[in-house]
Each structure stands twice: as structure tokens, then as C-alpha cells.
Design a protein around this nucleic acid. Sequence first.
DNA 1: AAATTAAGTTTCGGAACCGAAACGACTACG
DNA 2: CGTAGTCGTTTCGGTTCCGAAACTTAATTT
Lengths: 119, 119
Amino acid sequence: MAIEFEPVSALHFWRETIVQSLRREAPDLTTRQMAILLTIYLTPPPHTVRGLAKALNVSKPAVTRALDRLGHLELARRRPDEGDRRSVLVQRTVKGSVYLNEFADAILAAAGTAQPSPS
Amino acid sequence: MAIEFEPVSALHFWRETIVQSLRREAPDLTTRQMAILLTIYLTPPPHTVRGLAKALNVSKPAVTRALDRLGHLELARRRPDEGDRRSVLVQRTVKGSVYLNEFADAILAAAGTAQPSPS
DNA sequence: AAATTAAGTTTCGGAACCGAAACGACTACG
DNA sequence: CGTAGTCGTTTCGGTTCCGAAACTTAATTT
């Protein structure tokens, strides 16, 4: 799928994607929660609370709370670090993979519809 | 700017954009608020509360509250409809334009880094 | 074995948000 | 007219979120 991106069409594309996700029944994640979820799935492990907080410029309690919510939704999972029991390793789940696959589809669909308006 | 989009790179691109906006001092808008702001700026007027609510599949009180916040941030403005005084017309502002221009820049920048373009 | 440092969580007070329902202002219809 | 319908806002009860600071547990240092 090839896209020619200009500022206005970039905004159209963004709008199309988030409007689609508003319509879905999929759980509505905050920006922070989404950033954490994407980081877990897209960057190499291990992922710790402290590492996520630093990488995303967010406080540690905010990461903890986001993980509470993601865990409750079964989109991510906490697992104690056997090597250092102070640490927590954040891991992926099947539901999380499905959720992000569907979200990627929404992005691609939006990229398709937001395109045709060069005039 | 040309982009080849595949599912995983679409997610990388999305992550890059929202992580950038997390870092900014720019006010953090909810998904609904962002959808409303984009709709005001990207689709033809007039924009009313009920129209926005219907277009975005959101309740009217949610639109009212989102407009309260956008108005307080001066990203959008309410103006009474002289023709039908029950209605409110939602209008753009200079700050809103600036905000979205910067956001478009963030999208384009993310598209650049998230995509080691093969062409 | 203290004392210190580190990682993550919990507490605290406050702010923002949500849907459903009630409400006031206004228009349209009979 | 008056009644019904429309539009946007406000109220109500409840949930979620936030940062700062205190706290718990575990590892490291002295």
C-alpha cells in the first residue's frame, strides 16, 4: 500500500483512524496506555516499569496504573523477574496481539480512504 | 513523501507519533476531543453539537464537555446560530490551526522515521 | 549486619470524564 | 395561541486518571 503524504491528508488519515476506533467496541485506551502497549509489542524486551517510564517520559505510578488496566483487559501481563525480584517484566498476550492486529487494519483502512483528494 | 505501509510499520508509525506528542508540552487531548477538533477543521461547516455527536457516534453531553475543554484551550469556539437560536455553531480558531499544523508535522516526522523507505 | 540504594506499588487530594436523565430556551406545528 | 418537538446544557452518581510523596520489598554497599 503506497501513500502520498501531505500535511492535510495526514490529518485526514489520522482523523479517519481515530473515528474508526471510536466506533468500535474495542476498549478505549488513553494515549499513555496505547504508547505503553505499542512499546511492549514493538520494541525488544525486557520491558520494566522503570524502562517504560523513562522511554515514554511518564511517571512510574502512571506506568503502574496503565499496566493495571492493560492487565485487566488482558492486553499485557506482569511477570516477576527471577533474576532481580524487585523488577517486573512486562509481557505480551494473545489478546494484545489480536488487539494491535485489528488496530493496524484500522490504520491501513484509513490510509486507503483518506487518500483520494489531491485537488 | 511516499510511504510503503505494512501492518507492523503502520504500528511503528503510530507509536512514533503518539510518543512524540507525549513528549510535547502540547495539551493532551482525549480521543474524542481530538476527533472533534479534526472534524471541525477537516469537514465542511456548519458544525453543530448534534451533528458532531452523530458523525462521531458520541453522546451530546460528551460533545458539550469536549467543546468546553477545546474552548478553554482556545482551539475551537462556540458561536450562537442567529438563524436558529437553539443551535450552536462550532468554529475554528487561530490556535487550533497552529495546533493541528504542528500535529501534522509530528505525523510526517513519524512517517519519516518509522519507515526505512525502500524506494 | 546495618545502612543505603533501587524498583515498583499504594496512598492522598484533586481533576477530568462518562452516560442517563432532567432541564431551560427556542421553534414548529396543529 | 398552546402543545409538542428540538437543541444544547446541566445535574447526578460513579469511574478513571493524575503527580507527589510515602511505603514495601529486595538488592547492594560499607
